[in-house]
Amino acid sequence: MIRKEVTVCNRLGLHARAAAKLVQIANQFQAQVSLTTNQMCADAKSILGVLTLAAAKDTPLIIEVDGPDEAEALSQIEHLIQDRFGEGE
């Protein structure tokens, strides 16, 4: 199991399109992926879970990944968040 803390840095936070992208990427891996804010924890493969986190800009997020392909999964998810979900700005 590996974990890493990142900060949501896109303007709109984990909203519709960003959440959908994150779930799509998490779904490509066998590993379990969870996201934890200081309030709650969600399964990154669950769109309902990710939306319920309602993580706005500047929310610190702990990504935990557990499974055979955990390293690659973590790296891709981290990159997506750091890259502001490809939203530019």
């Binding site: 959908a20 799509q24 779904n27 399964d43 493969k45 669950s46 769109i47 309902l48």
Partner: peptide, 15 residues
């Protein structure tokens, strides 16, 4: 087309 992706994500939701 993104609407179809959203549908797939919902159907795949482990919840």
């Amino acid at each position: 087309l993104a609407i179809f992706d959203a549908h797939v994500i919902i159907l795949k939701d482990p919840a």
